[in-house]
Design a protein around this nucleic acid. Structure first.
Lengths: 147, 147
DNA sequence: GCTTTTTGGTTGACTTTGTCAACAATACGC
DNA sequence: GCGTATTGTTGACAAAGTCAACCAAAAAGC
């Protein structure tokens, strides 16, 4: 019932591997007007408009203080708006401005291009294998495994 | 020949997923005497004694300045030694002290426990599926795909 | 209802990380 | 040798992340 040493080692090895890969991928944001944290927020708000800072904190695991400041920055730069939240006057509903949507589109385009570049090195059979492997991992580690 | 939108989306989705997971995993170091950067260095030097700061910079993708300071910190805390490098008097060969090895052992134990905790939620068939998926991804993305 | 406790968010003070450029010492190419 | 590239250190910063205090609003307890 207990996992084997080899299984544990494989997991840790993979985590190191993917950490390094993510380090490379995140460089896409270095030459953009948005920081990494800002990019992640733009993405989340793009996916779910009218969410709150609380939601973002949960999903991105960010400190409230840092979040508040980063959101102020995004607002100051005209990419995001914070409007009163109907039903909870403490909270603010977050939404991208048109400029924010434009920026997000651009960031996504770069990200997709970069991934496309990686996938270009694989043939279609390999891509499908990769796709299945990623789906498997998400599936296996999703529900209760976050402890 | 070009990757499909679905393949690109899956890849990006997985990257977000694993970023979040790594965020949880890295918390193991928060309650330890070593910082995350220190931990990564301890691990690398543990795997390859007598390596140099240059090697670490390559493998961990860290700035030289930051690395130099972090190494000073590790030395100051008695976990690492920097001795003259035979054959290159600019470089220093890095090595864990006995205390450093002890700390590394402890950090590794925690990391393994944590991974074991995650794997405990899976039966053996699932663990083998996970193992295969991780091996697949590493295999597919390793050689030239890092661009 | 009124009080107490929680929650969402902001702010200030601070530490840690990361970045950039300058520099000294050494190694390397030719 | 001489110019160039490399290794590591340092200083000056900028950015990111942490912690605790605080206010206003909401939720819970009774």
């Amino acid at each position: 019932m207990a996992p084997t040493t080899a299984q544990i080692d494989r997991f840790r090895r993979f985590s190191r591997f993917y950490t390094a890969l993510l380090g490379l991928l995140d460089d896409r944001l270095l030459h953009s007007p948005a920081s990494l944290a800002q990019g992640r927020i733009l993405f989340e708000v793009g996916v779910e408009p009218d969410c709150t800072a609380r939601d973002l904190g949960r999903r991105l695991d960010m400190d409230r203080g840092q979040l508040s400041r980063t959101l102020s920055g995004l607002e100051r730069q005209g990419w995001l708006s914070r409007a009163p939240h109907p039903g909870d006057r403490r909270a603010r509903r977050l939404r991208l401005t048109p400029a924010g949507r434009l920026l997000l589109t651009e960031l996504e385009r770069r990200s997709r291009d970069q991934v496309a570049g990686i996938l270009a090195g694989l043939d279609n059979e390999q891509r499908e294998r990769l796709d299945r492997a990623m789906a498997d991992i998400e599936d296996l580690l999703s529900p209760p495994a976050a402890g």
